[in-house]
Design a protein around this nucleic acid. Structure first.
Lengths: 146, 146
DNA sequence: TAATGATGTAAATTTTAAAATTACAGGAGG
DNA sequence: CCTCCTGTAATTTTAAAATTTACATCATTA
């Protein structure tokens, strides 16, 4: 019910593929080592990103490569690829308010009004950040710490 | 790791208290009936809201009342009262990236850059919605469905 | 053409976080 | 002093996420 850690792992993978995808075969096992998450999880993440056209994975022989200019891959697109209705899962809602109470009867609709506004704002915010920005952050941080 | 359902329950309670707080004694048991969540959960939510000065709860005899003009109670304030570091829990992050990999070594810092921007935007968005807005939504919806 | 090293998925298990429950001490007011 | 309530700790239950296991399938190459 939160924006999944899968999203963080996906970004990790995308940076990795951008960095090493040309030079070597980037497999789910390799990404598993780098991210510390399970190769099956990686494969399911790559599969989602693939369906969205963000990257390609060679079946049989293996290896992932980016499929799309960095600036066209927004965080919104990544989140949506990983979890299509991530917005509606942002806020948890109590499932069983009393239908006998005027507040209980209407609370879901009332909350929806505000949560929809907030969800829209969040999407806008996510659209403003692209993989290009993230990768330039990555280079900036590497320079500082090297 | 998401914005808790406690936040939805808190809003439910605040609407209820605003509506009935003057007329009758609003106890945690009553709110439990209306929300469908446990009285202990309600008490812990009210306790958080109380600490933030949003409402008062009479100890001993019982009953909750609002303590603050509706327009001064933003969703940001509610979320923060319930869960002080809700922003940092918005995005899950994989715990153990490889320190041997240049990407793994830096990924947490890289993600922080973007997640901080998004967190700030979210806070702005939450600050723009107040209990006053929510309660006027409530009245509007009640009129439609009655 | 068989062996190798990948992907793609389904199903079961483990882990983790959230919420409910139980239990009880303590205060206000009739 | 009895009743109804709050405050809070500790335990149990529930639900969601991630890992693990297992295996069918596919391309390359030796």
């Amino acid at each position: 019910m939160h924006i999944s850690t899968k999203c963080s792992v996906a970004i990790h993978c995308l940076i990795f593929i951008n960095e090493y995808g040309g030079k070597q075969k980037v497999t789910s096992d390799l990404l598993s080592l780098s991210t510390g998450s399970n190769p099956v999880t990686i494969r399911s993440i790559l599969s989602s990103l693939k369906k969205d056209g963000i990257l390609s994975v060679k079946f049989g022989t293996g290896g992932a490569t980016l499929n799309c200019p960095l600036k066209e891959v927004s965080m919104y697109r990544i989140c949506r690829a990983i979890e299509p209705d991530f917005v509606s899962k942002l806020f948890g809602v109590h499932a069983l308010p009393s239908p006998l109470c005027p507040v209980g009867k209407n609370i879901h609709n009332v909350l929806d009004c505000s949560y929809q506004k907030i969800g829209n704002d969040l999407c806008d915010s996510l659209k403003r950040i692209t993989l290009e920005d993230i990768i330039s952050d990555y280079y900036a941080i590497r320079q500082k710490t090297d």
